[in-house]
Design a binder for these strands. Structure first.
Lengths: 256, 256
DNA sequence: TGAAGAAATTGACAAAAAGTCAAAAAGTCG
DNA sequence: CGACTTTTTGACTTTTTGTCAATTTCTTCA
């Protein structure tokens, strides 16, 4: 009896999910199609009508998944930042002294930018007031939650560095502010690189190298032990990438 | 005869400009009205129709000034970056050792962000692909020109630091890449601050302090002589602000 | 001064995209 | 099967951008 009930309930659930699975499958297709359009044809090409055509459905169906275009973009950004947060998490819980874990976060950023270009594009699109302001508070909160968790993970490494005696922050700055400046350096570099593709013309061969060197010397400047040379830093970055993110295509030793 | 000709020509010119002055006056009014709307009601509120109403003219007249909304925004961004470039110029031609001039650029950035909030907002709006892609190549070139000039001015300071023996760049990084990482730190911090107003909640009291400390320690980390402590840096920043930008409202000593 | 011509303004209109919703179709379950 | 729920559909409304022929305003010159 109980078994029957259970199996029946399961069957009901199975059917229910079977129906919803179809919808969820389309949602995945929707998101991946939107991503394709974004990457290949740019933001302007991504309209709801276009999306409907591409998926061979009516526009109303798209609006059944997301109340408007902005929410679709923000939902894509949420999965993106979720991935980033996972990578930050892996980096900050890796083994080694605090500075090595910090290096792993740097590796995470570079891998994220290199191997998940759509993720980064979507994250930066969503920053824009024109998008952000039109989204529901729930999704914005979700986005902020991940953002803060990323920050907290990095700030945690800073704190453990202080606790271990490897780092002494100068008066008037706290771990979160240090974290912000590191993330700003990384995020800012990638953003500038993305929006002005003429960096090569003014002598910047590689943003990645610029980020690597900038963060290396900032941390050295803070006196975070052990101090590294540019060469040591490069070696360790490649190695940490292999151990913490073995499934990812590895970083080039000399950032290009 | 010649005098008559000349005066006649001048009269003609005067009339010509008199007519155009009216148009130019309105263009100024247009731009300042757009700025007001942007600052007080945000990007979404800035439509061409709204602008026309605000100015008591027809929509067609607005389109007589700018072919579309994006061009209006980019033109605002051009005057903004022009101002920034002037400030960078003043900073980089100030007196003192290379590191002091670099500090002056930092002061320029902080003043620019504090005292010209609209300028910064407009510069960052225009980065977005949705805006950038729809502008004419001419204005985009103009924007790039100023951007590159700003970069070149800073890279020039780096180069003079190297020439003076105050700085030795590690192999594999050039002055432009160093410049990029500094600008990314600054621009990135301000952008993050602008787009996520919840930084206070996670313990970041002041982005300005974060930028100051981040760039200070990055330059210290590069071994750029003379090295400074956080206190020395703060003192000098306030002083350089008074000497290089005396007409600007001064920076607070402890960045808040 | 005033008439002819040039330049600028206007607002109705076309175009494009977002977003809505009542009716139809598909799916569920006793 | 048949009553019911859920989902899809596409025509429709709305909103905003951008256009342009007609009109007004300004300039020039006899």
């Amino acid at each position: 009896m109980e078994i029957d009930d259970l199996s029946k309930k399961n069957a009901v659930n199975a059917k229910k999910t079977a129906k919803q699975q179809k919808i969820e499958l389309r949602e995945e297709l929707l998101v991946s199609t939107a991503g394709q359009i974004l990457l290949t044809e740019g933001f302007a090409a991504l309209s709801m009508e276009r999306l409907a055509e591409e998926l061979n459905t009516a526009k109303g169906t798209i609006y059944n998944h997301y109340p408007n275009r902005e929410e679709l973009l923000l939902s894509m950004a949420v999965t993106a930042i979720n991935k980033r947060q996972e990578m930050f998490d892996a980096a900050s819980t890796s083994t080694g002294r605090s500075r090595e874990r910090m290096l792993a976060v740097g590796a995470a950023c570079e891998i994220y930018r290199r191997n998940y270009p759509l993720h980064f594009v979507v994250e930066s699109i969503v920053c824009h007031a024109a998008i952000w302001d039109r989204c529901t508070e729930e999704r914005r909160d979700l986005m902020r939650k991940f953002e803060h968790r990323c920050m907290a993970l990095v700030a945690g490494i800073v704190r453990s560095g202080i606790a271990d005696g490897d780092l002494e922050l100068p008066g008037g700055i706290n771990p979160e502010e240090m974290t912000l400046s590191l993330w700003a350096l990384t995020f800012g570099s990638y953003t500038i690189d993305m929006t002005s593709p003429s960096l090569k013309d003014i002598g910047i061969d590689s943003v990645h190298r610029s980020v690597r060197m900038g963060s290396l010397h900032m941390l050295n400047g803070y006196g975070w032990q052990p101090l590294w040379s540019a060469e040591e830093h490069g070696d360790r970055l490649v190695r940490v990438c292999q151990t913490v993110f073995p499934e990812e295509t590895p970083l080039p030793h000399s950032a290009t």
